[in-house]
Amino acid sequence: MPKTPDELFAFLDELGITVKTVKHPPLFTVADSQALRGEIVGGHTKNLFLKDKKDNFFLLTVEEDAVVDLKTVHTLIGAASRVSFGKPDKLMEYLGLLPGSVSALGAINDTEKKVKIILDEGLMRHDIINVHPLTNEATTSIGRDDLVRFLRATGHQPKIMAVATPADALAQ
């Protein structure tokens, strides 16, 4: 049974990690969440739940407007082949999440370490990172270093690497 947001917050509290959470109507896309800009400071995320042909699973967490080249990202993240989006049933099985609620905080449910967590370098330049707390009805602001500490406490060793192109770089 996946953890609830309250269980997630209790775990963060046990780790001594302070977060700030804002409740809001359900957000299903990056476009939906952009309506909150100005209210919530920090880096806002987009999450890609991916798999390769050998059923290796990856969660890429990047800045909301960054672009990930799905044709080549497999060469960066160590996938066995080109990647595609993971199915909702695997998202629920491994991370305990529904589509629209995807977040690195879902690592709390991946007790078998089936998902490799990749954090984009561009996102990690922000002191504060905003993620869904296992539901798309809230946004939790967590310190960059605290996010890494949380992931390690769940048994995941996140890779921090450049996997995305910032949107402003594409406009040039």
Rank of each mutant, 00 (worst) to 15 (best):
F85C: 10
V73R: 08
L36M: 07
N109S: 06
G42W: 09
G42V: 04
E7H: 00
L27D: 12
V22H: 14
R144L: 03
V62Q: 09
H132C: 06
V73N: 09
E39T: 15
L48W: 08
L95E: 02
T75R: 15
A10Q: 13
V102Y: 11
D127E: 15
F58V: 00
F49P: 03
I77M: 09
A104H: 06
H126T: 07
P133N: 09
I40Y: 05
L27A: 14
D89Q: 13
R82M: 09
R152W: 07
H156G: 01
K159G: 12
V41M: 14
R144A: 08
G155S: 00
A10Y: 04
A66N: 15
H156R: 00
E93S: 12
I142Y: 10
L170F: 09
Y94A: 06
D52S: 04
L36C: 06
E112H: 04
L76N: 06
D52H: 00
K87V: 12
M92A: 13
G42F: 02
I17F: 01
T75M: 13
V163G: 03
L134F: 05
F150W: 08
L147T: 04
I142V: 14
T140A: 05
V67F: 15
K159D: 15
G78W: 08
M92H: 14
K46Y: 01
I160T: 15
L97D: 11
G122C: 14
D110R: 05
G16Y: 00
L123Q: 09
G143K: 01
S141P: 10
L134P: 08
G100A: 10
G43H: 05
V163Y: 07
T72P: 03
T111A: 13
H74A: 13
P26D: 02
G78V: 11
I40W: 11
H74G: 12
T140I: 10
L76A: 11
M1K: 12
L123Y: 03
A79Q: 08
P166E: 07
I77Y: 07
I40N: 11
E14G: 05
N109I: 02
L95M: 13
V68A: 01
K159A: 14
P5I: 10
D55E: 04
S141K: 08
I142N: 00
T140H: 08
F85A: 03
V83N: 02
K51T: 06
D65Y: 12
M92G: 00
T140K: 00
P166Y: 08
D65L: 14
S81K: 00
P88K: 11
E39W: 12
Q34V: 05
T75V: 11
G122D: 15
G155M: 05
D69Y: 08
Q34F: 05
A138C: 10
N136D: 05
E14D: 15
H126P: 06
E63G: 14
I160P: 12
L170H: 10
K46A: 11
S33V: 03
L147P: 04
L134Y: 01
F57D: 06
A79M: 00
H74C: 09
S141N: 05
V148M: 13
N136T: 10
S33I: 09
I118H: 09
D145P: 10
T29P: 03
A138P: 00
E64Y: 12
V41H: 15
V30N: 00
R144E: 08
L105N: 00
N56L: 10
K46P: 02
L123V: 04
L123K: 02
V102T: 10
Y94F: 15
H44F: 08
G106N: 09
D65V: 07
K71I: 03
L97W: 03
D69R: 12
L48M: 04
Q157Y: 09
V22A: 12
